[in-house]
Design a protein around this nucleic acid. Structure first.
Length: 763
DNA sequence: TACACATTGATTTTT
DNA sequence: TCAATGTGTA
């Protein structure tokens, strides 16, 4: 712990960072404000333990939420101390839980190979169960069942039968039970189950728990404010008598409460572990004083927080700009104009981000960007592995690896259509249910007994042969060859023949992308390989005997043979389905929800739609405590900005097809006025804006015709803030939908929305 | 199986 | 409003 050590001198940490990095406390809580160097501290602490305290890289367990964060941490630790990258215990909660389950599958009560089930499979299965149990949607929907089950699992509970529940809860428990039985039967494990099952593994096998408690001298957890009940329990299960736990997080950035995250985990950490040492990182290295001032102003309105005062040694910077748009279209146009302005000042598009509360807001923005020919990229839309064609392809691969996978079976038995409609599928399903076997087995038996119509029989035989054939071919070829073979034999591409050219092309490209993903997939991530890099794991296998892994040598090469590589690939895909997007480094404006922006930073940020009911969202205004989470979300949004922050709201917004008057978000009012500056475009006065603002204090109801609409008529000489002077050629529609055609002296003839263009009549 | 029509539901989504 | 589902009919 000497500050003279060369390691620390090279690191250039501030005093708080350094005390966090070198702390000897067994329980360390680092409260790291936005942009305060949180990851840096975590990585340096790991490196410090390895280089200065003689801890082996294999004795550290580092846990994150996203694969991105895990990879970054892994690489940075390895960089800092020449530790091996592979085999280190750095990963996501789910990824690490999965690793435990693969190693100890037998003690966890699982068959090898088990398969990870995604949300889609989960919902499909529940729909089936609902039908089977004849549950009406009026009672509760499959989606609600899914929510219930996942919530229960996140709290660490398996299905319970019993007294003291109302009728509906009891029924949901029955659904849960049936669901769990089906999963167990077909060796399927959902996301929540990964954690729950590995927790049970530790609880039921003290020797295994004890081994890991001794093995992991230090447990490091990132983004601790986002942990839920089971994740905390899981960490506690790994905590023995003397291993240490470091948690890093920011209670002010807890924005996943609705997903079960318990902010109490970080707030009450020191009550749970009284020896806890708490270090606050309050110096921000990202933003200007104005932005930090605005952020502090907002977050200080929250009661339930540990309290931090973020500060920066940086420049004052521009005040936060506020724009009151007439409606959402005006808002989007304004933002696009500002983007062009920053671009002309030398800030490339890719360094500018538009953040919003809900995805629905992106559409209007997109239109405006498209119109102005500004390139953009939307994050967090549909993920690569969530696309229909990829899902189908994956289902085929899953069937090849594990024909018992009913979810996969159902997904592709009649896709591409091969004449096995609902009736045939139902027959197979019934047979499977009746005999408690998988649909694959049921199908084989139905064929044996010739229990189907001749046509269905033939189709089914063909389908089974198709899968079997691929299984056989798969033995001798590489993974990517298998994927190619699967695609050509299943005719997946052709199945989309009647879609539009564009659609078809996109799907085909995605499928090609899948092939290349398969070829670049390196099976060295194979767990058997990885775990045997770790000497203590090797010892465990030899000495203790309860470890059922075989030190099988897997060639670390790209063309490892199927099926080992296929199994690893399937796991990889279900756990790391994240960033696999095409066009990356083109210069495009970044668009995403505020949630998706957490952890990122941009020189220029636009926060759009700061309106009551939208942000904070209506839904969060009823329940207590939810508003505070919205405020934290706002804090996250503000603190994404490095140099320029522009906030906007629309006074009128179309929501679900209805034009609604809105009020400015309370969060804007929470920004100290010294850091805020309201702006208007150009010199054109906006009479409409003022009239409307007066109106908005009245009970909303009659959307009286827009003052401007009636005043423009054919032949009028008008002025437009961007196009200049022109003559009205024609009008179309009325009131809010009125469109005007104007022949501008400079810009030529254009159609404009009357209420957006805000034309000033000159003559 | 395929298409037309009705119904529903609509924050956020690390794995 | 509008997209994604579900239902009904040829």
């Amino acid at each position: 712990m000497t500050s003279e050590s060369s390691f620390l001198q090279g690191a250039r940490l501030n005093p708080e960072q350094e005390s966090a990095v070198t702390s000897g406390a067994r329980f360390l809580r680092v409260l790291a404000g936005a942009g305060s160097g949180k990851t840096r501290v975590l990585v340096h602490r790991a490196a410090f333990l390895i280089k200065e305290c003689g801890i082996s890289p294999y004795e550290i367990l580092a846990v994150t939420f996203t694969n991105k964060a895990a990879n970054e941490m892994r690489n940075r630790i390895a960089d800092l101390c020449d530790a091996p990258v592979k085999g280190m215990w750095v990963g996501t909660f789910h990824g690490l839980a999965h690793r435990f389950l693969r190693i100890h599958f037998r003690d966890a009560g699982l068959d090898e190979p088990f398969q990870i089930m995604d949300t889609d499979d989960q919902l499909r299965m529940l729909k089936r169960i609902h039908k089977e149990m004849q549950i009406q949607d009026a009672d509760f929907t499959p989606k609600q069942s899914m929510g219930f089950i996942n919530r229960e699992k996140d709290e660490g509970r398996y299905p319970a039968s019993g007294t003291g529940m109302d009728r509906q809860t009891r029924l949901m428990q029955e659904v849960y039970q049936r669901y769990q039985d089906l999963c167990d039967q077909s060796s399927l494990v959902d996301f929540a189950e990964l954690l729950l099952r590995s927790l049970k593994l530790f609880e039921n096998n003290p020797a295994i728990a004890d081994f890991y408690q001794r093995k992991f001298a230090h447990i490091l957890v990132d983004e601790f404010q986002d942990t839920n009940a089971i994740q905390f329990k899981w960490l506690q299960a790994l905590l023995g008598h003397d291993n240490a736990l470091t948690i890093v997080g920011d209670d002010d950035q807890s924005i996943y409460g609705w997903r079960g995250a318990q902010i109490e985990n970080i707030l009450r950490f020191s009550e749970k572990y009284p020896e806890t040492e708490t270090v606050r990182l309050e110096q921000n290295y990202r933003s200007t004083k104005s932005i930090i001032g605005a952020a502090n102003g907002v977050i200080s309105c929250n009661i339930d927080r540990l309290g931090k005062a973020l500060w920066t040694a940086g420049e004052q910077g521009e005040p936060v700009q506020l724009y009151a748009a007439y409606n959402e279209i005006d808002e989007s146009k304004f933002i696009v104009e500002r983007i062009a302005h920053f671009k002309s000042k030398g800030i490339p598009y890719r360094k500018q981000a538009i953040l919003y509360r809900s995805n629905a807001q992106s559409r209007v923005m997109e239109e405006a960007l498209l119109h102005a020919r500004v390139p953009y990229r939307i994050y967090g839309g549909q993920r690569f592995f969530d696309r229909a064609e990829i899902k189908s392809a994956m289902a085929y691969l899953r069937l090849i690896a594990l024909p018992e996978d009913d979810a996969a079976f159902e997904r592709v038995i009649n896709f591409p259509a091969r004449g096995l409609g609902d009736r045939s599928v139902q027959t197979i399903r019934d047979a499977a249910n009746a005999q408690q076997i998988s649909m694959w087995q049921a199908a084989s038996r139905l064929i044996e007994h010739k229990a189907l119509s001749a046509r269905a029989h033939n189709s089914l035989v063909q389908f089974i042969e198709l899968i079997k054939g691929l299984q056989t071919t798969g033995q001798g070829i590489t993974l990517s060859e298998l994927v190619s073979a699967m695609l050509s034999r299943t005719q997946l591409v052709q199945a989309y023949a009647k879609e539009s050219q564009e659609q078809r092309q996109a799907r085909e490209e995605n499928l090609k992308e899948l092939v290349s993903a398969a070829s670049s997939f390196n099976s060295i991530t194979d767990f058997e390989q990885e775990d045997f890099l770790d000497p203590s794991m090797r010892d465990m296998a030899e000495d203790d005997g309860f470890l059922p892994i075989r030190p099988k040598v897997v060639e670390p090469s790209n063309d490892a043979k199927v099926p080992a590589a296929l199994a690893a690939f399937l796991d990889h895909v279900s756990l790391e389905s994240g960033e696999m997007q095409a066009s990356q480094d083109s210069d495009a404006v970044q668009m995403m929800t505020i949630h998706a922006s957490k952890g990122l930073e941009f020189p220029v940020v636009f926060l759009a739609g700061l309106e009551e009911g939208l942000f904070p969202s209506q839904m969060s205004m009823n329940e207590t405590g939810r508003i505070e989470e919205e405020r934290r979300l706002c804090y996250v949004g503000i603190t994404r900005a490095e140099q320029y922050l522009t906030i906007s709201y629309a006074e009128s917004r179309r929501i679900y097809g209805e034009e609604r008057r809105t009020r400015i978000s309370r969060f804007v009012r929470e920004i100290p006025s010294e850091f805020l500056k309201e702006i208007r475009l150009g010199s054109v006065v906006k009479p409409v804006y003022h009239a409307r603002q007066q109106e908005s204090s009245l009970p909303s109801g009659q959307p009286a015709s827009a003052p401007n609409d009636g005043s423009v008529k054919v032949g009028d000489r008008v002025m437009h803030r961007a196009f200049g002077e022109g003559i009205v050629l024609a009008t179309e529609g009325r009131d809010a939908r009125m469109r005007v055609q104007v022949n501008f002296t400079r810009a030529g003839s254009k159609w404009l929305m009357a209420n957006v263009a805000k034309l000033e009549v000159l003559s």
